[in-house]
């Protein structure tokens, strides 16, 4: 099976959120980046499928130079090669624009399976994978936890709301968006890190892909959310705060 995994580099989970001078995004200067969480699970599923059935795992990421590190990390975990869509102004594309770049970069690969994460931890659009499927004219399924190969294609396990699940049969080529949490993620070994340095990582300039960058939605500004509820903050040392809370539990919440 030839599998492409789309991986996005996002700010570290604990990153401090400070709005930058443009008012359109957060300041990135002192921020560390990592692989988007659900994309790490998508990569793991791809590696497991290759281990079971053979084939090739190709990682795809769009973004500036620094994204190369995240692609190398995926290569160190075992992906075979990488494609980097190089752009310093990815924010000027909307989800359709980014998906068009990705479609243009991988159309000739004719992969059997394309995996993306369910949703990015920064923009949280939850759309790029599904849009890519439509652009490539292939079927998709979202919120996927498990993938099995069948004689005619694949059988996937989809998560539904409130603890319900569903199996779906579909032909390949197909695109799946992967939900976090179903498997343990592997770590890159020292050997893997060494090998990654020699693996193919092809860069393509976004501008060379012939994609119309005019967005159909734009992010005008960002703002810190305002409090909906007036939270009573209990302050002091841990012991003092704990004592205050116990008093509230006794007198106001009446559960003690």
């Amino acid at each position: 099976m030839k599998i492409i995994v789309a991986i996005k580099q996002v700010p570290e989970r604990d990153a401090r959120i400070r709005i930058d001078s443009s008012g359109k995004w957060i300041a990135l200067d002192d921020i560390e980046f990592r692989m988007n969480e659900s994309d790490a699970y998508a990569l793991e599923e791809a590696l497991l499928l290759r281990e079971a059935h053979g084939g090739e795992v190709i990682v795809l990421s769009a973004g500036p130079e620094r994204v190369g590190q995240t692609i190398r990390e995926a290569l160190a975990k075992g992906a075979d090669r990488g494609i980097h869509i190089l752009s310093d102004s990815l924010a000027s594309y909307d989800a359709l624009g980014v998906a068009r770049l990705m479609a243009a970069a991988i159309r000739d690969e004719a992969a059997d399976l394309i995996l993306t994460g369910l949703q990015s931890d920064d923009l949280g659009l939850g759309q790029t994978g599904v849009i890519l499927a439509e652009l490539l004219a292939i079927p998709h399924s979202s919120l996927i936890l498990k993938i099995e190969k069948t004689d005619t294609g694949i059988r996937v396990l989809r998560e539904l709301e409130d603890g319900w699940f569903q199996q779906i049969e579909m032909p390949t080529p197909a695109l799946l968006t992967i939900q976090s949490g179903n498997t343990r993620l592997r770590y890159a070994t020292l050997m893997g890190i060494k090998k990654a340095k020699t693996k193919e990582l092809r860069s393509v300039e976004a501008a060379s892909l012939g994609v119309d960058a005019v967005p159909s939605v734009t992010l005008d500004s960002v703002a810190l959310p305002s409090r909906q509820k007036s939270t009573q903050m209990l302050t002091g040392s841990p012991a003092e705060a704990a004592a205050k809370l116990v008093e509230k539990l006794q007198q106001e919440v009446r559960v003690l």
Partner: peptide, 8 residues
Amino acid sequence: LNGHYRAA
């Protein structure tokens, strides 16, 4: 963070 979006 909240983002304010508009259709273009």
